[in-house]
Design a protein around this nucleic acid. Structure first.
Length: 851
DNA sequence: CGGCATACG
DNA sequence: CGTA
DNA sequence: GCCG
């Protein structure tokens, strides 16, 4: 709607109002139909920015004034979404969120229509035709990296208070859990406990291996399995490796000494060159190094937590020993083959007599001893070099993990406080305790790195419990319920690609598989991989489970009409009916085939469409309109009240009241009322701003605003990351407001509320905010997500824009992002489903306050 | 026939 | 009650 | 108004 039409409408007389209002309502969704896209999140490619890199904006923000800053092209990092890898709330909730994430994966990826002319409108397809030609179905493939959606990023509960229902406690008893609750975990760490007896035992199934599988194994497989389990689980293994290393070095030293003594005894000190001497010289520092490494591994700060420079030095040291022993190996071999006592046989290609060489010592036995010792030296040195190289590769492992994290779309956090999951190569509980806070151990799963690989293999977040290297908190009290749900949903095997499970997990009717997600895309393998992540349309009661285009390519006029009926129900204060229309509109919007030819009996099979809706839809497609909608459009009173509600702070109740008191124009409303509502943005200001605020904001401007605000934010806050949420994040080309979700480093001491206040002060000083609708309480609880609702204006000549700035700690960033991405129906269905899944009503901010 | 999202100003 |  |  344009500013002109709004102004005309506001100033119109009662007689002309009806027509102007009608034209207004007619243009409610009159935008040109956008190409059909799923909720793809931000259409810009979303990268997960590793916090590791400490990305800063291109230019120093403080040097430029706000406006010139804003005019700069949008080159910021804002399209990167950095979300700490974490679990939401309790593990039980984590499972639920994981499912949500799976089923809502369409929100996580950029979806691109398939090339080469595949029609996105399968209007002639009969969905009941069993042999449906899938090639005619709308086909979408996904590209781009996974970014946060539902599961990764929601956050761990901090308080740990659990509202354990008695019956759930009871149910917990039969629970098969990781051995984490056995008391060895809490006992001081001792070698003998970890050697076979403790929870690190191979008896605990390895990740991804069910007990039934183990039972079916052959002896050889069982042996392999137990070996693997031993090597992976046993805390003694690294020590064993080091012990072997030390033994090798000791042997090398011994051989060097024996060899040298022997040579001296026979008066042939130069017979095999300097290699025995070098072995004697190199061995002691190498042993010291090995012992140092044992200390590093068992007693120091875990190497993964070292400073980068320390890690580099550690690697360099390792490299030095690789070099030393490589040199020794080469030298020992050369000394052997060119020995003055000629160790090589006369028929070998290495055999030749050098000047001064003696083919014989006094005793043949002495020569054999010397030569054999030299061979032993070569072998030991070779093994040592191999061992060093293996250790070297282990150091490299850390980088691999970081890359994996990034590849999975999660974020590697520098500060432990920011993380929601801790990954470690450590296995000893005492060491883990030494390097984590009690709070972390209580609320964050501490997992083996193998979990990451399992996630990468499965393409989803897999059950983390088998990967726990430290007892998971009591928060698992709800795991039983989750487990049974997942099992009933067929969603409990981590190695199953998610789309297979999702098919089973979706509540669905026979109507469902109109569009299969099983078609292979024509070209590259990458696309094939991506394809499996594009969920098919699902006939479900819950909006969270189905992909939905921003605009329906088939039914947008019908959707708009249903929305009009919904507005009417809202004005008439019929919340439940209103919701039914909202659901119906959303359901229709998501349907990927034409409803037009369908009889009522088929229409009612779509979830959310009942008898009445089906009738209305039939009416719409036979008569070309819905009678009730026409009535509403012709009703001046309703249209007037509808116009009233476009003012900030005026809802159905006030609109009706005002209308009954004789108000007919927006001016009437403002002159009559001086409501205390929305203290800083009353009806008068709201009316003044309406021409501006009702104009939609293009993406570019939203991004410019965000860039500007974040630049200001960065003048006093470090490590700021942000995302434009709201309908923009759902892919809308324009919106009526900008939702900016921002987060910052855990090292920052300020609370989100304090930051918001500072930011608002800065924005006011610039000045580019004209109204403060509301700001967070100044001394709000330190851990809450806080919001500033502002009216933003770049400079006096530009339009006023509604701007919401959401400030969250990084732990809650993902949750905040989810909560502020919407849509409204999505949020409601999210909570509805969560409640249905039996989440305890709790007051922790994690669940309650955020959603 | 009960439930339908939730928190905050 | 209105807003997100 | 729809769903279970």
């Amino acid at each position: 709607m344009s500013a002109e039409s709004t102004a005309a409408q506001a100033g119109s007389t009662p007689d002309t109002r009806a027509t102007s209002l009608r034209s207004r309502s007619g243009s409610v969704s009159g935008d040109a139909p956008a190409p059909m896209t799923f909720y793809g999140g931000n259409p810009l490619p979303l990268h997960l920015t590793p916090i590791l890199s400490k990305t800063r904006p291109a230019g120093p923000a403080s040097e430029e004034s706000g406006i010139s800053q804003m005019l700069q092209p949008f080159t910021d990092v804002s399209t990167g979404v950095a979300v700490p890898i974490c679990v939401p709330y309790t593990p039980a909730q984590w499972f639920a969120w994981r499912d949500l994430r799976l089923q809502g994966a369409h929100r996580a990826r950029k979806l691109v229509p398939l090339p080469n002319g595949i029609e996105p409108e399968p209007s002639n397809i009969d969905p009941y035709d069993a042999d449906i030609n899938v090639e005619q179905a709308p086909l979408f493939i996904t590209r781009g990296a996974l970014h946060d959606t539902v599961g990764w990023e929601a956050q761990a509960e901090r308080t740990g208070r659990q509202n354990v229902h008695p019956e759930k406690e009871e149910a917990q008893k039969g629970l098969t859990m990781h051995a984490a609750t056995e008391e060895q975990w809490n006992a001081p760490w001792m070698f003998d406990e970890t050697l076979g007896a403790g929870p690190a035992s191979a008896k605990v199934p390895l990740e991804g291996v069910s007990e039934e599988k183990v039972a079916q194994m052959t002896d050889w497989q069982l042996f392999q399995y137990h070996t693997r389990a031993f090597l992976l689980r046993n805390a003694y293994v690294p020590l064993l490796c080091r012990a072997v290393n030390v033994m090798l070095l000791t042997s090398t030293l011994a051989i060097g000494i024996v060899l040298r003594r022997k040579l001296r005894a026979v008066g042939e000190e130069a017979a095999v060159g300097v290699s025995p001497l070098l072995a004697i010289i190199f061995s002691p520092p190498s042993m010291a190094h090995a012992i140092l490494q044992i200390w590093f591994e068992y007693f120091s700060l875990p190497i993964g937590l070292w400073k980068l420079s320390s890690k580099l030095w550690y690697t360099v040291l390792e490299l030095v020993f690789v070099c030393l022993w490589s040199a020794e190996l080469a030298l020992a071999m050369d000394n052997y083959f060119t020995s003055t006592i000629v160790c090589t046989a006369s028929n070998s290609p290495f055999y030749f007599i050098r000047e001064g060489a003696r083919t014989r010592l006094e005793h043949q036995g002495d020569k054999d001893t010397v030569c054999n010792l030299q061979v032993a030296l070569i072998c030991l040195t070779f093994v040592s070099v191999i061992v060093y190289l293996m250790v070297f590769m282990r150091v490299d492992d850390y980088e691999r993990v970081v890359n994996r994290i990034r590849q999975l779309g999660a974020v590697h956090c520098e500060a432990k406080e920011d993380a929601n999951i801790l990954l470690t190569a450590l296995r000893a509980p005492r060491r883990i305790e030494a390097h984590t806070s009690e709070d972390d151990r209580l609320h964050k799963p501490i997992l083996a790195v193998a979990w990451l690989d399992a996630c990468a293999d499965a393409g989803i977040n897999v059950d983390l419990r088998p990967f726990a290297v430290y007892p998971l908190s009591d928060a698992y009290s709800h795991a039983q319920k989750r487990e049974s749900f997942l099992q009933s949903a067929g969603a409990c095997v981590p190695t199953t690609p998610w789309f297979k499970r999702a098919r089973l997990a979706f509540p669905q009717t026979p109507l469902t598989p109109v569009v299969h997600g099983t078609l292979d895309p024509p070209d590259e393998l990458d696309d094939r991989e991506a394809w499996r992540h594009a969920p098919p349309w699902t006939n479900t009661e819950y909006a969270i489970f189905r992909p939905t285009p921003l605009q329906s390519a088939l039914h947008q006029p019908l959707v708009d009409t249903l929305q009009l009926l919904r507005q009417h129900r809202r004005l008439t204060n019929d919340a439940h009916s209103e919701m039914a229309y909202m659901r119906a509109a959303a359901a229709v919007k998501a349907v990927p085939f034409a409803l037009e030819p369908m009889p009522v009996e088929q229409l009612v099979q779509v979830k959310g469409i009942g008898a009445k809706m089906a009738g209305l839809i039939r009416q719409f497609y036979t008569l070309g309109t819905i009678a009730e909608a026409d009535t509403i459009r012709a009703d001046a009173a309703i249209q007037t009240m509808l116009a009233f509600t476009s003012l900030y702070g005026i809802g159905p109740k006030l609109a009706e009241k005002a209308y009954n008191e004789g108000c007919r124009t927006l001016q009437d409303l403002t002159s009559r009322k001086k409501t205390a509502l929305a203290a800083h943005l009353g009806p008068r200001e709201s009316l003044a701003l309406l021409p501006d605020l009702s104009q939609s904001i293009p993406r570019e401007e939203a991004e410019a605003i965000a860039t500007h605000v974040v630049a200001l934010l960065r003048t006093f806050l470090s490590h700021v990351q942000y995302t434009i949420a709201g309908s923009f994040r759902r892919g809308a080309p324009q919106s009526n407001d900008v939702d900016l979700v921002a987060t910052y480093d855990a090292s920052e001491l300020q609370t989100p509320a304090q930051i918001l206040h500072t930011l608002v002060d800065v924005l006011r000083a610039v000045p580019c905010i004209t109204h403060i609708v509301s700001v967070a309480r100044r001394k709000g609880e330190s851990d809450n997500v806080h919001v500033a609702q502002l009216v933003y204006r770049t400079k006096p000549t530009t339009l006023h824009r509604r701007l919401d700035i959401v400030m969250a700690r990084r732990m809650q960033y993902g949750a905040a992002l989810l909560g502020w991405t919407g849509s409204v129906l999505f949020e409601r269905d999210l909570r509805r489903w969560a409640r249905l899944q039996g989440f305890p009503p709790r007051d922790s901010y994690g669940w309650r306050t955020m959603f």
